[in-house]
Design a binder for these strands. Structure first.
Lengths: 194, 194, 194, 194
DNA sequence: TATGAATGAGAGTTCATTCAT
DNA sequence: GATGAATGAACTCTCATTCAT
């Protein structure tokens, strides 16, 4: 058994090192720094990733998987009120963004570094949009939200959440405002529970 | 007369060339392309700018000057209703952003390319924030807006406008949603004119 | 029984894989591809060959052994007329070259890749030269060839055959011409059988 | 006048350095060595050649221009006998090859290094082939050569000359044999002048 | 014996920047 | 003031090779 190391694990190790380096160094990030950070030689990285772009994509895919899957978690299943569910999940998404602040920042900063990354993200947020849209429809049906286009509502919510990410990265001092804007937006469409 | 050229003028010429190149080429922009675009040798640029970073800063300063001064322009002076003024100016700012889309995109993309650029921008948007804050206070006093923290209101408006820029650059398909969010936000705080 | 595999056999297997890879990939050949082709790990090759150059030499030696021994084969023993024997053997050599075209091409292309390869080839063709020389002497004695230096004759024949290889590799469209030149050269020295 | 150096001249200087390096180092040649040889930095070469392949092509084009144009020189115009002209020009071509031995060697060694180089050479030798063909036709018409396909004759002559190059590079000890083969080939087709 | 892991040496290439004219 | 020449630093990527298991 010449296998000592779990290939997949090390791949993730490298990826995290990469994320840290990108977050810290931004534009100055490079394979050398990443290699150093995880105690490997620069060339070893090529055993795990085809090239730099491969590493980028893997990182984005991996972290967005983590991020966008969380809102499906069971802890929201218990909630029956769709408006409350909307408030909680959006808040939760922003909380999660906060805790991954550096990594998220890295994503945005690499958006124009890697070909086709925005499309990839757009594709991945589609699930989130659908989730909001469904909740909105349900809320309207249950009389918890005033009649409106559920698609429109979901789009705006998604846009506000994306804004949260952007600001968190570039102007973190404004995070509070957007959190309020999100909550207010949901509430302004809700009808007080009877 | 060995000197024929206005140093300041040429500096601006170069800067505009730079902006165009950054807008068109994004990540692939470089001094060579900029020099070519303004019909100069690459090295001549060093006669006008200390280094590449100097050129960046100059460009950002110059264009934000143009941008953030426009909302002070006389054409809004005629408007007396502060709510209408808010709606018009925010709309105007977004229109302007649209027409400078490429350049704005370039700014965002160079945010982490140049040291201290976010601070610079933050400093410059302070004027805008103040402008909104003043309008809000006025609107409240005139009974055109429900009582709220004018600072808070201005912050949120600023944040929404910044979001517009971010989305315009990375996810332009969502611009419509934010325009609506901005208008709705203002209106939701306004009190119908009697 | 920890040992199951015949070391010598596997060595040859690897070598053939190498030949195929060199033939197909030419300049792009590398140990990785060779290893993949014979279903081994890249590093396993080092169990059989000291290094890449060792593999080259082994391959060249092995194939030239096959090649230059073939003209001694029994099927020519039956022929009694030395001129006919010359025509047949030269033709046979070129036929064989044709069927090993890719491999031969690879040899030529690696001539300057491996130290001392041309000397090795020169040494090996000496046998061929001797063979031609002997046939020429016999033909002259039997009155089937006009008097000339058998050494000279053999040298020229060898040179023409080498040319055949070169052209086959780089300008295969010219193969026909050389085949004719070879035959004409032999015939022009021959005396019609009475 | 900030121009100090003749761009074209330096381009040729670099090319010759490259040829020398290729000839000496063969497979080990690289841009570093070339740069060192002409006393420049590695990167400076990129001011004159787009990339390595550009340098290769330029070298081949330049030297084949020199080589294949020489046989058109005026000194053969005086000769009226086509057979003599064939003998002299072929001899001259081989003489020239001798004097450019290193460079020619370099060509052959780079044949498979650069995409489409053999085609380029084939295209360039077409002129030579035509030249031989025309001479052959003339010779036949004048009764100086026995009837044969002039195309065939030219092809074979070309092939023999190419062989000369190959052997010169790899097995220089055989040059003499080919020189004789060339002369004999021409003579064997000629008819003694009356 | 076989092989995954890891690496060093080195290749080509880009680009901002300096210098002399 | 303007520019051609030249370069160094840095980056991505390849590949033969060694080592430990």
């Amino acid at each position: 058994m010449p296998k000592k190391i779990d290939h997949g694990k090390r791949k993730i190790e490298i990826m995290y090192a990469a994320l840290e380096v990108y977050a810290q160094e931004g534009k100055n990030a490079n394979l050398s720094l990443i290699a150093t950070r995880c105690g490997l030689s620069r060339t070893t990285i090529y055993q795990y990733f085809k090239d730099e772009s491969d590493l980028y994509h893997y990182a984005v895919k991996h972290t967005t998987d983590l991020a966008f899957e969380s809102f499906n978690s069971e802890k929201w299943q218990a909630l029956t009120d769709p408006v409350e569910k909307l408030l909680k999940t959006t808040e939760s998404i922003m909380d999660m963004a906060d805790s991954y602040e550096k990594q998220v920042g890295n994503f945005l900063k690499t958006l124009d570094r890697v070909e086709g990354l925005t499309d990839m993200i757009k594709h991945r947020t589609a699930k989130l949009n659908l989730f909001f849209s469904r909740l909105a429809r349900q809320a309207i049906k249950e009389g918890r939200m005033r009649k409106c286009s559920s698609k429109d509502f979901a789009d705006k919510l998604e846009v506000l959440l994306e804004s949260y990410l952007f600001h968190m990265v570039y102007f973190p001092q404004n995070k509070g405002e957007i959190r309020e804007l999100v909550a207010d937006f949901i509430k302004s469409n809700a009808i007080a529970a009877s």
